[in-house]
Structures are given as structure tokens and as C-alpha cells.
């Protein structure tokens, strides 16, 4: 399955968006069903241990968080991140233990690949985005390619596409909403933008 699209966010800058999308906490919050998202050592982490040690409450994200804190925890090229994704579709709610690797991260482009497995099913995904300035703000051009394997692929054909669409759709809705918050906040305070700019 392939998906792609462009999300336009007015009144913001590529730098702000870049920073926001570099924040694992914000990404976690935007992903429907994401139980935790943390950096891990390698591609084969112990999910039980990670689940136990995941923080109960998320630290603040933009605009409350400081740009420096975000830069500190930002995705790193070559880094591995573990996530537990519960994809709930009615009575069907498999939890996918997912590991994502940031394959490329160079402003304004990011590319990540990951795979997740649940009982008798698994998926692989590859996704990327590129930021571009637009007249009114920023366009986030994104694409994703996902493959599903095993029982879900055989038995759940009828729902895979809509579910994937929904996950992707909600993710970008949420990202857009959070970024709007950021840009609104920037406009009102004027402070964030300069703090963000100084990081580049």
C-alpha cells in the first residue's frame, strides 16, 4: 500500500515544523494507539522492559516545551526507536511491537523505516517527508509505503486499507493541529520562533 499527501500549515516556518516533527513525544501523541515511543539501543529491544520503564506521563511538547529540550530528545539519524502500537479495529486490537529506524534526517528531509509484529501478523513500513516553504507557511510533503503480512493480510483485507488510511489520516490531522498550536503561539509570543531559529 502506498500513501502520500501534502499537509499545509499556515503561519509557521519550516524550522518550527522541523523541530516539532523531530520530537518523539509529539509523534507518539499524534499516532493513534501508540502506547509508548522511546529510543532503543538496537533493532531487537526487550519490549516488556521498555513498557515497564516508559514514563507514565509525557513531558510537554511544543509550544510549552523548550526548543532545547526538544532538540535534546529529537530523532537522530541512524537511531532506533521502539513503539508499542495498538491498532484497534472494533473487536480486533492487535498490539504491534514496532521498531523504527531513522534512515535519513537532514533538514528539510527525513526518512524512516520500521517493522512491527503482533501474533501471526506483521507489517513493514517506510516513510518520509520533506518540508517546503509555501506562500502562507509550510507544506509538508509526505509519503508512506506499508506492507502487511500474515493473518491480517489474509483475513483482514477488507479493513486494512481503511484502517491504514485512518491511522495516517489521524496522524497528520493531529500533527497539523499541534503545529497550528505552535504557529499560533509563535505569532502571539514571537519568542518561540526566534528560539527555534537559533537552533539551526
Amino acid at each position: 500500500m502506498e500513501f502520500s499527501g501534502t499537509v499545509s500549515i499556515d503561519g509557521t516556518t519550516t524550522e518550527e515544523v522541523w523541530l516539532a516533527l523531530s520530537d518523539p513525544v509529539m509523534i507518539k501523541q499524534a499516532l493513534p494507539g501508540c502506547q509508548f515511543l522511546v529510543e532503543c539501543e538496537d533493532e531487537d529491544p526487550d519490549f516488556d522492559a521498555l513498557a515497564a520503564s516508559a514514563p507514565e506521563e509525557d513531558p510537554p511538547t511544543l509550544p510549552e516545551a523548550s526548543a532545547e529540550d526538544i532538540a535534546e530528545r529529537a530523532f537522530e539519524e541512524g537511531g532506533h526507536y521502539a513503539a508499542l502500537m495498538e491498532i484497534s479495529v472494533g473487536s480486533v486490537s492487535p498490539s504491534f511491537e514496532t521498531v523504527v529506524t531513522i534512515e535519513e534526517r537532514e533538514f528539510p528531509r527525513m526518512h524512516a523505516a520500521g517493522e512491527g509484529s503482533a501474533s501471526s501478523s506483521s507489517f513493514e513500513m517506510s516513510s518520509g517527508m520533506e518540508l517546503a516553504e509555501s506562500e502562507d507557511g509550510v507544506d509538508v510533503e509526505w509519503w508512506a509505503e506499508a506492507d502487511v503480512f500474515g493473518r491480517v493480510a489474509q483475513m483482514g483485507q477488507r479493513v486494512i486499507n481503511p484502517v491504514a488510511n485512518r491511522v495516517v489520516g489521524r496522524f497528520f490531522d493531529q500533527v497539523e493541529k499541534q503545529l497550528q498550536d505552535v504557529s499560533t503561539d509563535s505569532e502571539s509570543s514571537g519568542g518561540l520562533r526566534s528560539r527555534v531559529s537559533s537552533l539551526f
Partner: peptide
């Protein structure tokens, strides 16, 4: 609705 998804192992 439920039993078919349970039988297929999805739920």
C-alpha cells in the same frame, strides 16, 4: 460479526 473475526484469529 464477532465470531467470524474470532474464528479467523483476528480477534
Amino acid at each position: 460479526s464477532l465470531l467470524p473475526t474470532m474464528k479467523s484469529g483476528l480477534a
